[in-house]
Structures are given as C-alpha cells and as structure tokens.
C-alpha cells in the first residue's frame, strides 16, 4: 500500500514537470534529444522526456477524447503499445508515462461496455446480486489477461475471482484503486466488464457491509439540531476578502498527505 501511494505521488511529480516542459514550446530547443514513436503506425520524432499525452500534442494531435485529468486519476487516457522487437503487449496511462524510443502506440479513449441498471436498495451484498446483474461474470476463464493490462497494477482477476464466490468485501478492497480506464475489458476473452462489476461490489460494500461512521451520524445529528446555523449565517454575510482571510488562516491538519494534497491544489489554482 505504501508503495502504491508513493507511486501516485511520483506520478504527480512527473505531471508537474511534464507541464512545465510543454508551456509554449511547440518547437523543441535545438539540443533536445529526440525519440522515435509511432502513432497509429506513422513515425514521429518527439523530444525525450515527454509523456505520451504531451508527445501526441507535440505531434500535432488535438485531444478531444482520451484526455481528462492529466493527473492519472480519470482513466480517460488508456494506451496500448508495443516496443520494437518485443512481442509483449504493454499498456499505460498516456498522461503518466514517458515516451520510449520505438514505441508503437494506440489510444483507447473509449471501449464499449455493458452496464446494468439496478436499485441498490433491493439488492443484498451477495453472489446473487452480482450474477443477477452481470451473469457474464461466470464466463471468466481465469486467464489473468486483465491483470496483465491494468495500468493501476490491480489484481483484476483476483477481484473477479472474489466476485465469483460472492466475497464482496474482497472485491471492494482489491478494486478500490480502479480508475475505470476500460483496458481490462478491452482484452477480456470472457467479454466481462470488470470495472462495472467492481463498482457494483464497492456500492454493495459501502451500503451494506462497511462499518457505519459514528462521528458522521453524530455530526448529522448536530447539524439537524441547528448547532452550526448561526455560524453559517455569519459566513453568508461576510465579504469576499474576509472569507479569503478566514480561509487562509484556517487550521490545517498536520498530516503530510493532506498537506500535499492542498499544495497540489494551490498549483492548479
């Protein structure tokens, strides 16, 4: 887990530097080292160190689909590639992965998926709920292809195996970091849409199995009793400047995680 978090952080790092290197540089500086990449079979030379996403833009593409957050969270920029001389099929998030020499790229901005409509109130956290909505889950042949293509390095086959035996808690846990990029579904010989099965699992887990947060119930109670009404009213009357000052001088939780999240927020502003 610690490792995963670390990698997320470094992703953010590469994002920031990627942005810096693009800016107005539609033309690379003379001494920039270039690499060859192939976009849908056509060769382009792009500066070394760009992310695949930046490289596509450098090559003149305008990304209308297949690009969202640029930060590794939205799952819009799924990419499939091979490198010269290697049979291995590789995948990446275009916004998170730096180009390599000899990359043959294709973007998978969208992949058709079967999505069930259900009323969560009427389901139970069980195998039945999964099979009723996604009977194709039982077509999984445990080939592990989904695991091999997940850019989040999730144990996709394992979460499907959990779904197949009604282990909703494990399904929810193993799929927690899924960003719904769709790459697993694009490669599944059983034609499953793993991420929709997973989100059903997380919904069931959240609604029926996760321990209820006591402090949340208490706070809701307090709100209902009007404990914060006066405070809100005062805030509503405040001027924009006073609000800003109040915001800047607020108590910030000491945790490193939160601090970093806020700093990233500031950069984006």
């Amino acid at each position: 887990m610690a490792e995963k978090k670390a990698s997320k952080r470094s992703k953010k790092g590469s994002k920031a530097s990627g942005q810096a290197s693009l800016g107005s540089t539609a033309v690379a500086e003379p001494r920039t080292e270039m690499v060859r990449i192939y976009i849908m079979g056509k060769q382009y030379e792009v500066p070394k160190g760009l992310t695949i996403q930046k490289a596509l833009e450098y090559a003149g593409m305008r990304l209308l689909r297949g690009c969202g957050c640029r930060g590794g969270f939205c799952g819009a920029c799924g990419t499939v590639y091979r490198t010269e001389g290697d049979y291995k099929l590789k995948v990446a998030l275009a916004c998170q992965t730096v180009v390599e020499d000899g990359m043959y790229l294709t973007q998978i901005p969208f992949y058709p998926a079967n999505k069930a409509t259900y009323d969560l109130e009427k389901l139970t956290p069980s195998l039945e709920a999964i099979v009723e909505n996604y009977p194709e889950v039982m077509r999984c042949v445990q080939c592990n292809t989904c695991r091999k293509v997940c850019p989040q390095d999730l144990e996709v086959m394992q979460y499907i195996a959990a779904a197949m035996r009604g282990d909703i808690a494990r399904l929810a846990d193993l799929s927690f970091d899924c960003i719904m990029c769709g790459l697993c579904a694009s490669r599944c010989p059983g034609e499953l849409v793993q991420y929709y099965i997973a989100i059903l699992g997380r919904r069931l887990y959240g609604k029926y199995m996760m321990p209820k947060a006591k402090h949340l119930a208490e706070r809701l109670e307090e709100i209902e009793q009007g404990k914060f009404d006066q405070e809100i009213e005062e805030l509503m009357k405040m001027s924009k400047e006073d609000l800003k000052r109040l915001y800047d001088s607020r108590d910030i939780e000491p945790e490193e995680e939160l601090g970093e999240a806020l700093r990233v927020g500031e950069i984006n502003d």
Partner: peptide, 8 residues
C-alpha cells in the same frame, strides 16, 4: 492457497 480462483 494464496490468490486462488475458481478451478474451472
């Protein structure tokens, strides 16, 4: 068995 799946 770690990481077991359905056997088929």
């Amino acid at each position: 068995v770690p990481d077991w799946t359905c056997c088929g």
